[in-house]
């Protein structure tokens, strides 16, 4: 179980997160939606302390790391329980696809090279990239790179995978393959927290939806409740705008809003 308690974050005098509380149960897929600048990405980065929160604490399983006192060692333990998928993929440029996946298995989890290779191949199989195992990241399309990013996270078998707008940097025609992979993993019962702009995908894949605006959680609940019956004015407005901007909407999305 993952619990965030009163997470606050300011950059200078600018408050970005104004006290977020959130609980994610094991095996749950949670999507965080909201307009840009609402603090969703910052919240995600606070979970593995890539951003150190100004206030609050993060609890995963048996360990709790607090914003102020969290030591290097505690943060490291926290990061070993999490993995992240980045908007810009951030694959290690000087390593091949399989080396990218093996890196954490060897360096962090201290597996032997052979074991790591075997595990990495299994994961690459899941994301459908075994034939690209020896390619370098620059030789791949954005969609393929992001699938490697997912494989790298998945290989570590973390308590939770944090996905930061995993499809935002992709050309529209490549979004599908990545979403499909994420969906497949979600069905395996892996805990995930996803920051995304893909509203219809979020509805499809999530067990729980969190809607954020201006550094706070405006509304949260099951997809059915949030999409069919939002209570808050801000949530309604957001979906209305998404609706308008999308222009030609996919049929399932327009039926929801």
């Amino acid at each position: 179980m993952i619990q965030l308690r009163n997470i606050q974050k300011s950059f200078g005098n600018q408050p970005v997160l104004k006290g977020i509380d959130l609980t994610v149960k094991k095996g749950e897929v949670v999507s965080i939606l909201g307009p840009s600048g609402s603090g969703k990405t910052t919240l995600l980065r606070c979970i593995n302390f890539l951003e150190r929160p100004t206030e609050g604490e993060v609890m995963i399983d048996d360990i709790t790391v607090s914003s102020q006192k969290g030591s290097k060692k505690e943060i490291l333990t926290l990061r070993k329980k999490t993995a992240m998928v980045f908007q810009q993929y951030n694959l290690f440029r000087h390593k091949t696809v399989i080396e990218n996946v093996m890196e954490g298995l060897i360096v962090v989890q201290k597996n032997s090279k052979e074991t790591a290779r075997k595990l990495a191949m299994e994961v690459l199989e899941k994301v459908g990239l075994t034939e690209k195992a020896n390619a370098y990241p620059v030789q791949l399309s954005g969609g393929q790179q992001q699938r490697v990013g997912i494989a790298r996270a998945l290989a570590l078998n973390p308590e939770v995978i944090l996905l930061d707008e995993p499809t935002s940097a992709l050309d529209p025609e490549l979004v599908g393959e990545v979403l499909e992979v994420i969906k497949r993993i979600a069905e395996e019962g892996i805990t995930m927290i996803i920051v995304t702009h893909e509203v219809s995908f979020a509805k499809d894949v999530s067990d729980y939806i969190v809607f954020m605006d201006q550094g706070e959680i405006v509304e949260e609940g099951t997809p059915t409740v949030i999409f069919n019956n939002p209570k808050e004015e801000r949530t309604k407005r957001f979906f209305k705008r998404i609706n308008r901007e999308a222009g030609i909407l996919e049929s399932n999305l327009s039926s929801v809003i």
Binding site: R79, A83, M84, N90, F92, R93, G104, V108
Partner: peptide, 18 residues
């Protein structure tokens, strides 16, 4: 070197030194 490289490495649990 892109800052994201360091972040990615730390996100999979490497120490800063590693």
């Amino acid at each position: 070197v892109d800052q994201g490289q360091l972040e990615a490495a730390e996100s999979i649990g490497m120490t800063n030194f590693q």
